[in-house]
Design a protein around this nucleic acid. Sequence first.
DNA 1: CGGCGATGTGGCGATATCCCCACAGTAGAG
DNA 2: CTCTACTGTGGGGATATCGCCACATCGCCG
Lengths: 78, 78
Amino acid sequence: MPALQARKPKDVAALIRAAREDRGLSQGELAELVAFSRDYMVDLESGRPTVYMARLFRVLHELGITVTLEYEVDDGKS
Amino acid sequence: MPALQARKPKDVAALIRAAREDRGLSQGELAELVAFSRDYMVDLESGRPTVYMARLFRVLHELGITVTLEYEVDDGKS
DNA sequence: CGGCGATGTGGCGATATCCCCACAGTAGAG
DNA sequence: CTCTACTGTGGGGATATCGCCACATCGCCG
């Protein structure tokens, strides 16, 4: 179960590429599944920082990638 | 430690708001920390689906929110 | 009641995303 | 070598983001 802490767009790009290849899909096939252009997939996997959040989620979901967000609460519980 | 599986922009928006309030910050104060506009924070917390990925990471990082991505590998293991 | 801080909405403008198209480079099959 | 499939790059165009500004609302306090 590949996993990683993503801090930058390039981290996301790397995992998307890895997941896509593990699924045996080409950029064009994945683009068709999510109804985006192949050019978009190229930009996404190259780590473009300015892709839209909803589009990103669409791709992640299609590849079966789960996104977990968490943070520590600082309630001065000495 | 608040955590959640994010599937949509609104999920992210909700956690950002929760984290910001736990930090005792106003939208304007957080906006200043990340060097964005207050209007942007309003849009972000309202679940706007078209915010840019890098900007999103900037806010998440500032609030101490970690992002974990993972997926199952389907290597026909019986 | 009047003032203050925080949040949400609307319009306006400059800038960039995303798509389409064409072409180049690489790897593998026959 | 030839042909095919996949990936990366560049230019051009339509559309939307993001910042600025003004205004309205709500809760709280003196």
